[in-house]
Nucleic acid binder design. Structure first.
Lengths: 251, 251
DNA sequence: AACAGCGTTGCATAATACGCAATAAAGGAG
DNA sequence: CTCCTTTATTGCGTATTATGCAACGCTGTT
């Protein structure tokens, strides 16, 4: 660990808590000499990570941070982070893998790694998935905050896509409970005859679920007898992505 | 200047530009030994400012940055004070509204309320705007104290972003005079073809202009025939924010 | 199987960050 | 107005510490 860098970073964290703090105060916080703190602040000031109040001469966080964290947000997007894992998931399951996102109260497919099988499921990037009968829709819905979930539930139109589509709100509410308990959501020919999908939630650094991943394949290949091995691989992949998004289970 | 801290910070800035970068690459960027970069990354990893991709072993920015920059945003008075008005401005004009700040002789975008139109202007938070041909740059420049203004003017590089960009110092000086007279600054496709922006100054309690707000939209929607209504709404919003910042016109 | 590239680690040295003490400047108390 | 305290800032010598070198283990490729 590099001491001076670490001390500089600690100053940033301290400044994040206090809207303004002086050299002497910070020196006491870090238990180091004033001059050390001064020089640390000085180099961070050069890069606009901290700025000095013109009146009080104390220091506060600077604009440069916005520049950096904007770069983070741009690159922390779920797509970039999940891409390798998604590919790996397709490799190990041989079925198409998808990443979905919840935006404007709807669930969309935002990325896909297609299966190499001649017969495969291929979703359209940008396609909206029904909330009530797709694995990804139900998965996201299950993990929304209760209030939001109820609001969405009230607006659901229970279109029956197949004979297996469940069209009662009560049944869906019950199933969401199961999903939270099991950690995955299932769509066994509810949306499309002959297609079976499984989805698992992605947690972001705040512990929110705004994304999920899923695998989809012909029910001739994915069926109730062998589904556990798919679920396992899916969950591992989802956990991996959550971790890379900054989610830490123990707080 | 403290070398190791500075190098660590430089890594953060580099990572803000590249979505992921390896130890060796960064060592070449900084022209230092790999081991040095590794140890710098290691100490930043401890604080979640960078994270390592589990698949490629390369590094990218980490969520710790969000924690710090949330602290910044929380404490940046201008952002908090102007947020509601900015939102209102977007509602009434239907175009994206921005807040900018003048720090270290440069103009940065620090907040944004995006338009709901499918076609809209979206600036990057933390992005630096050119002084000589952006509405916000010219606006801030126009209201700087004369001495400061001249100093900045001497350092301007008159890059021509479009065919409409004005590249003479004399023309700019003249325009700044107009801006002060009119109370707003205009960028009609000078920075980006097809984009029209208008900016107005924010006064703080000392009567200084360190911020400005602006609206930006496609020149198909904002053009010279209807611009007066935009200017009106913009000025009202700017005055409102100035007032909330403690500015009292009678001194 | 050999190689090339990567991230990682141990080690010795010299660069460099550190604490001390002095300075300057600003604010408050009498 | 003056003294006194407290602040940020700077020079300097020393010893800590960050650094480059070189070797290691690993992965993937040829």
């Amino acid at each position: 660990m590099i001491q001076s860098l670490d001390r500089g970073l600690e100053i940033l964290f301290i400044l994040a808590e206090h809207k303004s703090r002086g050299v002497t105060e910070l020196a006491e916080d870090l238990k180091v000499n004033k001059s050390t703190v001064f020089r640390l602040l000085d180099t961070m000031k050069e890069r606009d990570l901290v700025q000095q109040d013109e009146v009080t001469a104390k220091y506060r966080l600077g604009i440069g941070l916005l520049h950096i964290s904007e770069g983070l947000v741009k690159n922390l997007d779920a797509i970039n982070i999940s891409k390798p894992t998604l590919k790996q998931l397709m490799d190990s399951t041989k079925e198409s893998a998808h990443l979905c996102t919840f935006t404007n109260d709807k669930v969309y497919v935002v990325d896909q790694v297609k299966s190499n099988y001649p017969m495969k499921v291929s979703a359209a990037i940008g396609h909206e998935e029904p909330i009530h009968c797709s694995s990804v829709g139900k998965c996201i819905l299950a993990y929304l905050p209760e209030e939001k979930r109820n609001k969405i539930l009230d607006g659901v139109r229970f279109v029956a896509y197949t004979e297996k589509t469940k069209t009662s709100k009560e049944a869906l509410v019950e199933e969401l409970k199961q999903i939270r308990k099991n950690g995955y959501a299932l769509d066994d020919e509810e949306l499309s005859v002959g297609v079976c999908c499984i989805a698992a939630p992605i947690y972001n650094h705040k512990g929110e679920v705004k994304n999920c991943i899923g695998i989809s394949g012909p029910s001739a290949r994915i069926h109730m007898e062998n589904i556990d091995s798919y679920i396992n691989k899916l969950k591992i992949a989802a956990n991996n992505i959550s971790h890379n998004m900054g989610y830490r289970y123990t707080k």
